[in-house]
Design a binder for these strands. Structure first.
Length: 404
DNA sequence: TCTGGGGTCCTAGGACCC
DNA sequence: TCTGGGGTCCTAGGACCC
């Protein structure tokens, strides 16, 4: 992800390759649970669920033993606990996951500089330039799985194909603990029998629409006249799905994608209905987001407030300003106004979120800004606060209202 | 059965400018 | 006085992904 990591591998040739099967998709098996099990080997072989156990929440990850009971990620905790009452529940420890994720990335970069991380536990690799040094993509895939298991005690699955989309489907099919190569000639035979939900961009809603049209398999989409699909789904999605259904996917592995937004949100353990209580959370989130912005040396122009009510309906309100900001005070001033403009009167609020979009690099942004004296003062305070947080932990410096 | 938290992308309407 | 489109930006919502 960083230049440092890319520069570690100057010896890898990027000359391309005549073979068309160079894209690897790597996906850890039950990542969160696997990381936790490394520290708690006594739980190996028993059902383990990683997720938020406090009433609300969903399963983040489950071991294979838990899966035998039909427990999957993205299932509510209460449902999971009902299915598997004996399972050990572990609260997620996100910092640990980040550390492991960074080490996994180092392993990817030892195979090729063309790495596109998708999430903490997943990545695309383009190994077209690595053949001379490391062997065929299949050999590289085996090495990768071996290394990940040796160093992190995590099994993973690897899909190898001519395109990102097919590589991802292949790794899913290979799960758990497997490797699958889909050559260009095999793509259609592999793809067409799959359910429509396998296509990138088909979720629950789209699946319903397609089912009403009698479309259940990828081949159904492929053989439908494009115009019929357009009328059902709109031009954009229809054309996208039609391309994918024929295995066409032009996207290349992009080693660096700049961040487009930074945000945090929180679901309360109990709904809040007092404006003062809600605003305190909005301030806390504004601070969190501002700190992350400054750490990433980014500033943003659009500030978004998200509010979810007790009935789960959700709204967003946003404000775009001319000059980008990264200060806690500036962000809070806007989120506070957005909240007050809602004119909620004792409405039960379940979640609030703060997000900053339209990001620019802070250096470029601030060079164009002529800062007044008071703004300069606040920048100094934010900087000092960031330093203290880095030294003493996040709780060291907080806006006065957050200190109980 | 009640639904976490981090994101990206698309659509549609309205304002505004030319 | 009434009337075009096209382009761009902003806002809100929603689908989707991991």
């Amino acid at each position: 992800m960083t230049h440092r990591q890319i520069l570690k591998l100057p010896h890898i040739e990027l000359t391309g390759d005549d073979s068309e099967t160079n894209i690897l998709h790597v996906d850890m098996d039950a990542f969160f649970a696997s990381v936790e099990l490394k520290d708690r080997p006594e739980l190996r072989g028993t059902p383990v669920i990683v997720g938020h156990s406090g009433g609300r929440g969903v399963v983040t990850s489950a071991t294979y033993e838990a899966r035998k009971f039909g427990i999957h990620a993205a299932m509510s905790m209460s449902e999971a606990l009902r299915k598997c009452p004996g399972a050990t529940v572990i609260e997620p420890s996100h910092e640990k996951y980040e550390e492991v994720s960074n080490r996994l990335q180092d392993i990817y970069y030892s195979m090729t500089p063309l790495v596109e991380p998708l999430s903490v536990d997943e990545a695309f690799l383009d190994v077209s330039g690595s053949r001379k040094l490391l062997g065929t993509p299949t050999e590289i895939g085996h090495k990768l799985r071996e290394k990940v298991f040796q160093e992190e005690n995590i099994t993973c699955s690897v899909g190898i194909a001519p395109t990102k989309f097919i590589a991802k489907l292949a790794s899913t099919r290979a799960k758990p603990d497997g490797l699958l190569v889909v050559s260009p000639e095999e793509v259609i035979a592999f793809l067409h029998p799959l359910p429509v939900g396998a296509l990138w961009g088909v979720g629950g809603k789209t699946e319903e629409v397609l089912a009403r049209l009698g479309l259940f398999k990828v081949s159904d989409i492929a053989n439908l006249p494009l115009n019929t699909l357009r009328r059902a789904l709109g031009d954009g999605l229809a054309e996208h799905l039609h391309e994918l259904s024929w295995g066409r996917d032009e996207r290349s592995v992009e080693p660096y994608e700049p961040e487009k937004s930074i945000g945090n949100e929180e679901t309360f353990s109990k709904d809040l209905d007092q404006a003062a209580d809600i605003l305190r959370e909005v301030l806390r989130l504004s601070e969190k987001v501002a700190t992350r912005l400054r750490a990433a040396e980014l500033m943003g122009r659009t500030i978004v407030l998200k509010v979810r009510f007790a009935n789960f309906s959700t709204i967003t309100r946003s404000k775009t300003i001319t000059d980008p900001i990264d200060g806690t005070k500036d962000i809070y001033a806007i989120t506070k106004t957005l909240f007050e403009n809602l004119k909620l009167d004792r409405v039960r609020v379940r979640l609030v979120g703060v997000r900053v979009e339209k990001l620019e690099e802070a250096e470029t942004a601030s060079r164009q800004l002529l800062l007044g004296e008071s703004e300069k003062g606040w920048r100094e305070i934010d900087k000092a606060s960031d330093k203290a947080s880095a030294r003493f932990g996040d709780d060291a410096v907080k806006p006065a209202r957050l200190i109980d």
